[in-house]
Design a binder for these strands. Structure first.
Lengths: 352, 352
DNA sequence: CGTGATGTTGAAGGGTTTCAAGACGGGTGG
DNA sequence: CCACCCGTCTTGAAACCCTTCAACATCACG
């Protein structure tokens, strides 16, 4: 059950609305002034807060200020109640971090609508966006009103790529975002001698190609299908509308990219100094994390030795030798090319 | 001279305000309706646009919608004129991307103030934020109203670090942002055998430690002074206020981080496959880019061999040997430890 | 002037890559 | 159905690059 905190000094309004909210199925906390409201917010952590601006002791601005300070309460949707429809008041409230405001006098329906719409939005934003942008789909649908899945069904904007086919190349201008409906894709960079390093692996349901678009430049790497794939193209416009039109989404993207930076730094250390054995072990773990299915137990990968070598950042032959070592040590098993991970723990804690 | 586009169907207001704006020293374009306004915006690209909402042919919402579509006009500051102070109208306008609004009736002073404040802000945002956050300083001052430089002068929140002193360590909770008033700092990661890889170099005027804060986690690397340094600590709160309270700043940060990702990927390829010679050459180029002074000509670095080795991702001895090779080849010169770059071009195009 | 930190050079050793050749497997065409 | 071929996988051996160990030089500093 969702809980609501209603902070309002006018006893009539407070009790009246509390009743309506309870009838609508919310658990309701009420407070007659800001100070008490903050206290309740801290202890009860309601799902949403409705707060009057003009109040004795601690006014609405003070309340939101205090709640913003505490990481535990700062994410709670916050709706202001204001008697004045003046732009100045509204603006100040929004700048302080309120999500919405309701002008007095208001009806119960208005209040319920505002609450519901905010809670729904909060729901979307709570979902973690993973580095491969799982869940972006829902956000795009929510923000642009276009249902990507529906466009799939109609076959619009979907390309088919054969195994080994290039999807985009380094230097191409970034004009669209890619979504994998079916198949697997790798992104990679090539050095002067033509040696290839895989820097991204993407699976069904993943988005890729977004870094170049966010940077506003051309692709700095290439992408290639490693299986026959079906890939949806999302126009740059739609993507930018999503990213730049919503403060919360932007915040998510900042976090996502920061995480991305950290991951790359991690990989940097690994490739720079670790032994071949550890590099290969790490590559296997990466694949495992990336492609594991829901079910527990043995995990099997079918990947070309060349690609695996390029993930680990080593030569094909070195990789193969290391794999057979691992096989002898019963860390993995190889059956007609397919690699099965037997002892994930040991692989993970591989000594250098 | 700054130019203003004033779109308004009421002839009196239009001519009146145009006169005032001209007197204030702006180049003024006027349009009696939205359609014409858009046309002028496209051709003249004014520095700022003021636009009425209620207009015949194409209303204010239509105007902003069309301008947002064109990359050339979407960045122009946009101020709405509205007769209705109703929250709904204002809100809709802001959501569409307007930067401000003025409620009719208004005075010339009000208009001039709004224009000036917007132009000033646009000025700030035009400055590119570089990966080391040069220019963030101005933004912080602008957004939080605190002048960091002034705090320096008063000696508040400034720490002194001796050479080799740790500023933060991997795993520390990220509670503040660092600004180098004086000195040099490196950030680095260490692998299981204690080998160190430098992943960031910072100079006077740079900010560092922001990735962990943006990610909302603890530091994933350590930072150490490589010279005696004076470092200002900026509370997380101030930084977050800056980043998350302003859409334009957020956008900048997204671009900044995306660029960061690309750079790390570049480095990844370099460290993975390139020869020792090329790695060392790249390290020297990096240092050059980072620490070069304004003046052209020979560039000299004073850095410990150990640190340099950790930037290139190699062993100290290997680095030293490569350096003396470079010296023999007249690519660099070494005088009492200090390295002078003689032939930057050849270093840059080093063959693998 | 001694002591510790830093820089440099030599030689040995080892881990990876590279070259080379053969094995395997799947698909094609006779 | 088999021979053949091509691409991928695997193994062997040599070469090579880089690291490591060790000794010594140099520098900074009290």
């Amino acid at each position: 059950m969702k809980s609501v905190l209603f902070i309002e000094d006018n006893t009539d309004i407070r009790e009246n609305m509390a009743e309506i909210l309870e009838m609508a199925g919310y658990k309701v906390y009420t407070a007659p002034d800001g100070k008490e409201g903050v206290a309740i917010a801290q202890t009860e952590k309601p799902d949403i807060i409705i707060c009057d601006i003009m109040m004795p002791v601690l006014d609405g601005y003070g309340v939101i200020h205090m709640l913003q300070k505490n990481p535990e309460t700062q994410g709670i949707p916050f709706i202001f109640l204001t008697a004045k429809a003046e732009r100045f008041e509204i603006r100040k409230g929004m700048e302080l971090g309120a999500d919405d405001y309701i002008t007095k006098p208001f009806t119960g329906t208005e209040l319920l609508n505002a609450i519901e719409s905010r809670l729904k939005k909060a729901e979307f934003l709570k979902r973690e966006i993973t580095p491969d942008l799982q869940g972006l789909n829902a956000l795009i649908t929510y923000t642009t009103g276009k249902d990507i899945m529906k466009e799939f069904a109609e076959g619009r904007n979907v390309n088919k790529y054969k195994k080994k086919q290039i999807i985009y190349s380094e230097g191409n201008h970034a004009l669209r975002l890619f979504y994998i409906n079916k198949g697997k894709v790798k992104s990679f960079k090539t050095n002067d001698d033509g040696k290839e390093l895989v820097i991204g692996l993407f699976n069904e349901g993943d988005f890729f190609g977004y870094v170049a678009m966010l940077e506003g430049s051309s692709y700095k790497e290439s992408a290639e299908a490693i299986e026959d794939s079906e890939i949806a193209l999302i126009p740059k416009d739609d993507f930018e509308k999503l990213v730049y039109n919503n403060k919360d989404v932007m915040q998510k993207f900042i976090q996502l990219l920061a995480k991305n930076v950290t991951e790359k730094e991690e990989q940097l250390l690994n490739i720079a100094y670790n032994s071949l054995r550890k590099k290969v072990a790490d590559a296997l773990i990466t694949l495992h994390k990336k492609y594991k299915t829901g079910e527990e137990g043995k995990f099997t990968i079918d990947i070309s030795r060349e690609n695996l070598a390029n993930i680990a950042g080593t030569a094909k032959e070195s990789l193969i030798r290391t794999l057979s070592d691992f096989k002898d040590e019963k860390l993995i098993d190889i059956k007609s090319g397919d690699i099965t991970i037997l002892d994930e723990k040991k692989l993970n804690s591989m000594f250098n």
